[in-house]
Structures are given as structure tokens and as C-alpha cells.
Design a protein around this nucleic acid. Structure first.
Length: 871
RNA sequence: GCGGGCGUGGCGGAACGGCAGACGCAGCGGCCUUAAAAGCCGCAGGUUCGCAAGGACCGUGAGGGUUCGAGUCCCUCCGCCCGCACCA
């Protein structure tokens, strides 16, 4: 007997992948190109492009990619021009570290890794337009990254700075704020320290206000918007100048959000790094101050910000003068301290301390025995509390009535004013006297834009006799020199310094000049790649205005939360700058952003909490035992990691079940946004489903042909199946729009289960339509069946089947009948029946429960239920 | 500490304020098979009454509230996850 015709992804998947690639089935046409259809709306579906690591693709990658692929295929079927590209974020530290480890040039390892990633992605049948592929390390691409840097420089948004930056000895480079977490590098968890180094910095703070307000209308999750808002960290207040006693002309400027509490400023705190510390410290205090400053500098950021630690600080010996009070007022003269709870880089690096109104200042005052002048007169009714606050024994924040003595001789008086009014009053008073002004500050710092590494974009910058010179557009791209040894030198200097011939060059006037030896950070190339995808081959421009006008903004951007404040902020910043230059129409690049959850995995833990590798575990159902000791183990859910031995390789899954099963399983696991564990036992379930779909079309016996006999011609299908199919199409449509892929798949399973029960009632037309619905999820199987069913042309180009709204309505509905809110019966009534019909049917259904009771109220929800309230 | 999210069967998860547990996994029974695998058909939250058909009660982390009706809305608490964390 001949082989059975079973569902065999290993033959159909490569077949269709090859066909799609050869015929460029998913190539997107730009306006003006032959074949472009201007009548169609556009849809730009984008994945956060991957960093091609040596480890290859991880099952986490295809989760988001499958989601955007489903939407892309769906939108094509719905008549959209779809842009769905893929490329590589290829410059950066990990590539370079891997290159160093394997002693291979990063260009080579990167190319090899990209090859692996591309092959793995193509095995999953994603409908990318591969003609638009590029890597950020391609000279044809980074030429324009350099060009954009020039534009930023022209606008005054790029500058050199010598301010302290995060230096990571282990990585041999500086890192930006979002790359350092708690004083350690995000990548590798190495210790970092602050040190001053000459660096290129981008003035993202100029855009802080816009980055904040223009976030509002975006279709992003609230939690992500909150993260960005907090990172930007806007706060409104005032800057106030304090004179220093005995130092005429020297002023200490502070930033405060509570200028209304100036009456209670009883000391002042400078950060240890504040430039005036050395100047104002008195000889008697100098030794202690020097010690403290040295100690603060030696502390890691982690130690300095450690939670719940006691505050430390030292008196400078100097006194500042509160601008509110005149000579002779005992409140005028306040001591100046230094303490490391004040951060040099925020605000002015100095604060006025108001212990009565600020928890931190109160703690400091208490610890060092400084006075706490009361400035509030609360009336909470709690006499003890009110008295304590008035006397300065307790600290309060927020809206509290001011004490009567909060007044100046010349008419400023806060008593009776609201907080907002008091803030305004104090600012007005200060401004009139040139002692302060309203001020808004941001936590966000400028973007540290240079790295001391080899594998990144060189700057289009020369250092000449006259200073910095930007290179001409024609000289771009500035490519990296070939170097045999690109390791960091242990110095805070780029390895490029050793490429002497490359560094030494001539400026535009023919004089000797040196190239900039720092390179750009990894986030440079990824800050505009979504633009380049619109016009990836353009040699004259970074992206034609026509192309970006058409495709942007990105309609759906899917990726992980880890880029919440880095990449997403930088991309928004660059887009706004390019917009301001008139080069891009949109002001925001990503209209809808969706964060997929993490795919986790099971791991085993013993009684001490130690991880037990799966190879040492004997599984028995859901329980697990140590193979050697027999100890019962606990199953935990955690991220996939080599340490736990629980990494799932997509290649293995594709090898065993096929790409369609992998895609379908990842979408079926649960909501896209949730983190959820990979359960190998669940995978066969979706594979079985695909096998059933296959059998709906293809007979087991090859002698019976490529499709069941009843599918060889058109004839009417089973009306009950028709109704189910209509429902299924409708449900999938709605679910795909809201990215609820798990429930869409459930709906398809329901249909297939029914259809399997009466297979020969299924018509060719019905099965074709079902296959169309399946196509975005399992495109290979769908395309194969479409062909066997004699579908017109390619399924990839077919229009989404229409739903007949009539078909969604049943003639009859079953309603629930409740008595006192509990379901006691059911009744079948005609759809759209009036309340009286419903009530009559309902009464009959629960007659027994109503017996001997009085109906107090009848609640009717048409088409759903009837509830009797009885007594 | 502050902000946000989440707690539903043995497991992953469904459920516009209206029949909790769709769909899948694991489980059980049956058909097919010499046997198994595969496949197909069916059962299935818990407790309990009943020979059965079919009932009853309890059930969405805990407690309270709003409502004719709460997994869903409100308050308090517990637990888990994420983000921020001396930002003046």
C-alpha cells in the first residue's frame, strides 16, 4: 500500500517559502513604483529589529514577529498596502565582545550571525519584504546615520562635554544613563563609576517638554507612557538665589518645587561635587569637608543611593542669607552643609532645606540637631498633631495652611493662601527683586552619544587646529579602518587611537587633522531604521520625503518593554528633529506600540532552592524527582536560561512540528502581552489541530486523490456549518484587530471540531474560506490547501472572506431564567421576541420556583436572560 | 516607600455588569487495531442526593460594599510580578 497522505510540514513549508521568496510575493511597492496601487490604504507593521547574537534565534523572538506577521497578512487580505520589513541592529558591544572572544573580526561574526538569524526567520514563513533588509553596520546605511549626526550638530543639538559620565572598566567604555542600573552595567552587570571624560552628547533635553506632552495621544500602554514620563521627570518650581555671608557677589542658586516654604528654610545643602564647596568652606571646616568629598567620590552610586541608610553630611562653616528676611531677622542666617543626598546633576546641585515641609530635610535636621522652624498652622482637628506641626516637631507635605508669621516686612504674606497661590506669590516677590524665578527642571539628562569602542559608527568629525570640523556630505560614509586588534586598551580611549594612519588626516583646508576616535552608541542606528525601511535603497537621501510621508507613522510596533526609555525615547527625539528640519512629516514615529510578554520556561528546584538541571530530573506527571537522591522537586516558572537548562530552540520545534505549529502555539499560549511559560506538552495540541484541518481537505489514501471527492466541485455546503463558519470569520477578524490571537485560534478550533464531525457536508467554498481565515496564522498549510482546493491565484493575495451579518443571527436564542439572581431554568425564544414573550416563556421555565411566591420585580435583558425578584 | 499590573479547575487560559471555566493540555471511558501508535466518538470545577433522568449546595486570593444580578465596579487586607526610588 502506498504511503498515507498525512500532514507533513517538512514538505509543504519549504515549498511555499521558496515560492514566496522567488516571486517576491511580499514586496511592498512605494508610491511612484510600477504596481503601486494608490487606492489602497497603507499599513506599516514593524518589529523591533533584532540584535543578531551568536546564540541565534530564541523562541521569544518569534512571538512578536508572529503577531505582526498575522496582522500584516490580515491587513493585506483586507486590501491594505502593507510594509512589513526586517533588518539588523548590528553595531554594538555584544557583537564586539563576541568577536574578541572568538578572535574574529566583528564584521565577519556579524555577517555570520545575520546569516543564521535570516535563515531561522525564513524558516518561520514571515511575510517580510526581504528586499528592504539592511544592517545598521552597512556603510550605505550608517552613511546616513552620520549625516543625521551632522544635522543634529548644525542645529546645536550635538556638543562635546567633559562632565562626569558612567565609565565601565570591564566593558572598556562609557555608558549612557539608561544602560546603567544601580551603578552597574545593564549588560554584564559590571561595576561602573563616574568620571569626567570628553564625550559627544546630544541635547535631547531641548525636546523634553515635547517628548512629554506629545506622548499623550499615542496608542501605547499607560504603564509604558508612565515609565517615559517618570524618566523625563518634569517638575515645576523655582530657582532662588541665596547670598553667602562674607562672600560678596557669590550666590548659591537652588532649585525647589516648594518656593512657598522658603520661610521655613533653616539650612542649605550642597552636593559634595558642587563647585562652590571649595570656595565657601571655612579653614576650620576644611579638613572635614575634604574628607567627606573624597569619601563621596569613592562611593559607588549604589552605596550613595542605598535605601534607608542614615543621612550623612558635614558643615562648611559658611552661612547663607535667606532672601526673604532683612538684616537682624534671626531667620536670615542659615548654615550651609554638604551631603550626598543632594545630587550634583539635578537642578542646581544645591537645595534649601525646609525640614518642616520635607521628609528628607527633616530627617537630616533631626540627625544633626538643626532647628526645625514651623511654618504651618494645620487645622485637622487632631490637636496634638496640629501642635506638633506648628512647633516643628513634625514634618508635613502637601496642602497645609500657612502660619501667620509667614510674612515679610514689605507685604508678602502667605496665611490664608492656597499652596498654588503661595507658590506664585513667593515667586513674584523674588522675581521683582531679582532673587529668583519660576523654573521647570527635568530628570532626563542629555544623551551621552559616544563610546570608546571599535564596532560602531565613526563620527563624521575632524579635530583641527581651529577645533571641531564636520566633514562634507560627499566624504560620507566615514568607514572603520581595518584593524587586527580592536580590543579596548584598558584606557578610557577608543581602540581606534591605534589606527594611526586612519586617525591622521587633513581638514578641509588641507591642514593636518585628527579623526574623532570615539564611535556612536548602539542606539544610534536603531533611532531611525524605521525611516530607512520606507526607502532602503536611496543613495541620495536618508529617506525620500514621499516615501516617509506615505508609510509613516508605524501603525503597529511590537517589541519588549526593555526599550521603554532608551530606544523609544531616542527614536522619538530623532524623528522630532527631522520633522523640525522639514524632512519628515510625522512628529511621532510609532502610533501604536504593543509590548509582548516574555516567554518563560519551567525549571526544577530542590529543597534548598538550588536549580536542578532537567537532565537530573525524573518527571512523573507534573511532579519531579531528583534522579540520584529521589528528592521531590518543585517546578518553578522562570526565564529561559542556559543556567537552568530550559532553553527552547525554535529550530528544534520547527524540525519536529513545523513552522505553522510553532507560530500557532506561540499565539495560542495566552494573551500576547502576558508572560507565560513554554509547555512542551501543549505543543502537540495545536499540531493536532493543523492535522485535522489537513484531513478536512486531503484523504489519507493517495489513491483517493489530492482532495476529498466532495471538494472537487462546487455545491451547497451544510447550512449549520455555514453559520459556524460565518461566526468564526467574524470572531477571528475582531480578535486579530485587537491582537487577541489566542481566542481567534480557539474560534477556529471550534469550527474545525464541528466540521470534522460532518466532513462531507463541508463544501469546497466553505473550506476555502476557512483556509483564508487560517492563513495569517498558519500560512504554509493554508496556501497548500488553497491550491488543492483550486483557489484563484495565490492565497497570499486573496481578499478576506465577507461576513454576512444576517448569518450571525440565530432564529432562536436560549435565555437564562433566574430567580433572585440564580439560574433556575432556561427558555428558548425567537430572536427579537418582545418582553412579554420572554416573560411568559421564563415564567413557564421556572414555574416550580415561583410557586407560592410573589414576583416583586422582573428584569429582562433581551436575548440574554430574565430575572425574577420574588418574595 | 511611591506608581502600575495581576490573583479563575491538576496546568495554559476564556468570559460587553447577565448561564463562570470557551479552547487546548493532562486525565478517564469507548470505537478502530492481533496489539500499540495515530485517528475518531464521548465524559469531565468541587461536594452531595439519586438506580437513573435530574436535583441541591459551595465555588474566580481574603473580608466588606454597590446592584435584581459581581470574576468583572468601589473600599480594606494578603500574595505575586513590573517600573521608579533621597530628583528637592
Amino acid at each position: 500500500m502506498a504511503e498515507k497522505q498525512t500532514y507533513d510540514p517538512a514538505t509543504i513549508e519549504p515549498k511555499w517559502q521558496q515560492f514566496w521568496a522567488e516571486h517576491k510575493v511580499f514586496a511592498a511597492k512605494n508610491p511612484g513604483e510600477p504596481g503601486f496601487d494608490a487606492r489602497k490604504p497603507k499599513f506599516y507593521a514593524l518589529d523591533m529589529f533584532p540584535y543578531p547574537s551568536a546564540a541565534g534565534l530564541h523562541v521569544g523572538h518569534p512571538e512578536g514577529y508572529t503577531a505582526t506577521d498575522i496582522v500584516s497578512r490580515f491587513k493585506r487580505a483586507k486590501g491594505f498596502n502593507v510594509l512589513h520589513p526586517m533588518g539588523w541592529d548590528a553595531f554594538g558591544l555584544p557583537a564586539e565582545q563576541y568577536a574578541i572572544q572568538t578572535n574574529t573580526h566583528p564584521a565577519i561574526t556579524t555577517e555570520r550571525n545575520i546569516g543564521t538569524f535570516r535563515r531561522q526567520l525564513q524558516r518561520l514563513g514571515f511575510s517580510y519584504d526581504w528586499d528592504r533588509e539592511f544592517a545598521t553596520s552597512d556603510p550605505a546605511y550608517f552613511r546616513w546615520t552620520q549625516w543625521i549626526f551632522k544635522k543634529l550638530h548644525e542645529r546645536g543639538l550635538a556638543y562635546e562635554s567633559n562632565a562626569p559620565v558612567w565609565w565601565c572598566e570591564e566593558l572598556g567604555t562609557v555608558l549612557s544613563n539608561d544602560e546603567v542600573v544601580g551603578g552597574r552595567s545593564e549588560r554584564g552587570n559590571h561595576p561602573c563609576e563616574r568620571r569626567p571624560l570628553r564625550q559627544w552628547v546630544l541635547k535631547i533635553t531641548d525636546y523634553a517638554e515635547r517628548l512629554l506632552t506629545e506622548l499623550d495621544p499615542l496608542d501605547w500602554s499607560e504603564s509604558l507612557k508612565t515609565m517615559q514620563r517618570e524618566w523625563i521627570g518634569r517638575s515645576e518650581g523655582a530657582e532662588i538665589d541665596f547670598d553667602v555671608e562674607g562672600h560678596a557677589g557669590t550666590k548659591i542658586r537652588v532649585f525647589t518645587t516648594r518656593p512657598d516654604t522658603l520661610f521655613g528654610a533653616s539650612f542649605m545643602v550642597l552636593s559634595p561635587e558642587h563647585p562652590l564647596v571649595a570656595k565657601i568652606t571655612t579653614p576650620a571646616c576644611r579638613a572635614a569637608i575634604d574628607d567627606y568629598v573624597r569619601m563621596a567620590a569613592g562611593k559607588s552610586e549604589l552605596e550613595r543611593t542605598e535605601l534607608a541608610k542614615d543621612k550623612t553630611g558635614v558643615f562648611t562653616g559658611a552661612y547663607a542669607l535667606n532672601p526673604l528676611f532683612g538684616e537682624g531677622d534671626p531667620r536670615q542666617r542659615i548654615p550651609v552643609w554638604i551631603a550626598d543626598y543632594v545630587i550634583v546633576s539635578y537642578g542646581t546641585g544645591a537645595i534649601m532645606a525646609v525640614p518642616a515641609g520635607d521628609e528628607r530635610d527633616f530627617e537630616f535636621a533631626t540627625r544633626f540637631g538643626l532647628p526645625v522652624p514651623g511654618i504651618f498652622a494645620p487645622e485637622t482637628g487632631d490637636a496634638e498633631h496640629d501642635a506638633a506641626v506648628a512647633a516643628g516637631r513634625k514634618c508635613v507635605a502637601g496642602e497645609v495652611p500657612y502660619a501667620a508669621h509667614c510674612r515679610t516686612a514689605d507685604g508678602l504674606a502667605l496665611a490664608g493662601k492656597s499652596k498654588v497661590a503661595a507658590v506664585t506669590a513667593v515667586i513674584d516677590w523674588l522675581r521683582a527683586r531679582g532673587r529668583g524665578e519660576a523654573k521647570t527642571t527635568f530628570k532626563m539628562r542629555d544623551w551621552l552619544f559616544s563610546r570608546q569602542r571599535y564596532w560602531g559608527e565613526p563620527f563624521p568629525v575632524l579635530h583641527t587646529e581651529d577645533g571641531v570640523e564636520l566633514m562634507a556630505d560627499e566624504a560620507l560614509p566615514v568607514t572603520l579602518p581595518q584593524m587586527a586588534d580592536f580590543k579596548p586598551g584598558g584606557q578610557p580611549e577608543s581602540p581606534l587611537i591605534r589606527a594611526r594612519e586612519w586617525v591622521a588626516t587633513k581638514d578641509s583646508k588641507g591642514r593636518p587633522a585628527q579623526r574623532e576616535i570615539n564611535t556612536m552608541p548602539g542606539a544610534a542606528g536603531s533611532s531611525w531604521y524605521f525611516l530607512r525601511f520606507c526607502d532602503p535603497k536611496n543613495e541620495r537621501e536618508f529617506c525620500s520625503k514621499a516615501a516617509s510621508d506615505y508609510w509613516l507613522p508605524v501603525d503597529l510596533y511590537v517589541g519588549g518593554t526593555e526599550h521603554a526609555v532608551g530606544h523609544l525615547l531616542y527614536s522619538r527625539f530623532w524623528t522630532k528633529v527631522l520633522h523640525d528640519l522639514g524632512l519628515v512629516r510625522v512628529n511621532e514615529p510609532f502610533f501604536k506600540l504593543y509590548n509582548q510578554g516574555m516567554i518563560q520556561s519551567f525549571a526544577w528546584q530542590d529543597g534548598r532552592g538550588a536549580i536542578v538541571m532537567p537532565t537530573d530530573v525524573r518527571e512523573d506527571g507534573d511532579a519531579g524527582f531528583h534522579k540520584d537522591t529521589g528528592e521531590a522537586l518543585t517546578k518553578i516558572i522562570t526565564k529561559m536560561s542556559k543556567r537552568y537548562g530550559n532553553v527552547v530552540n525554535p529550530d528544534d520545534v520547527v524540525g519536529e512540528y513545523g513552522a505553522d505549529t510553532l507560530r500557532l502555539y506561540e499565539m495560542y499560549m495566552g494573551p500576547l502581552a502576558d508572560s507565560k511559560p513554554w509547555n512542551p506538552k501543549d505543543v502537540p495540541g495545536v499540531h493536532r489541530f493543523l492535522g485535522r484541518v489537513w484531513r478536512l481537505c486531503v484523504p489519507e489514501d493517495p489513491a483517493a486523490g489530492a482532495q476529498h471527492t466532495w471538494l472537487r466541485q462546487d455545491r451547497a455546503g451544510d447550512p449549520a456549518l455555514e453559520k459556524l463558519l460565518q461566526r468564526c470569520i467574524h470572531k477571528v477578524e475582531g480578535d486579530v484587530e485587537r491582537l487577541a490571537f489566542n481566542t481567534a485560534i480557539a474560534a477556529m478550533m471550534i469550527f474545525v471540531n464541528e466540521a470534522t464531525g460532518r466532513m462531507d457536508g463541508l463544501s469546497r467554498d466553505q473550506l476555502r474560506r476557512f483556509v483564508q481565515v487560517l492563513a495569517p496564522f498558519a500560512p504554509h498549510l493554508a496556501e497548500e490547501l488553497w491550491q488543492r482546493l483550486g483557489g484563484q491565484g495565490l492565497l497570499a493575495y486573496a481578499n478576506w472572506p465577507l461576513v454576512d451579518p444576517q448569518a450571525l443571527v440565530d432564529d432562536e436564542v436560549e435565555i437564562a431564567v433566574q430567580v433572585l439572581g440564580k439560574v433556575r431554568g432556561r427558555a428558548v425564544v425567537p430572536t427579537g421576541a418582545g418582553n412579554d414573550v420572554l416573560l411568559a416563556a421564563a415564567r413557564a421555565a421556572v414555574a416550580a420556583q415561583l410557586e407560592g411566591k410573589t414576583i416583586v420585580k422582573e428584569i429582562v435583558v433581551p436575548g440574554k436572560l430574565v430575572n425574577f425578584v420574588v418574595k
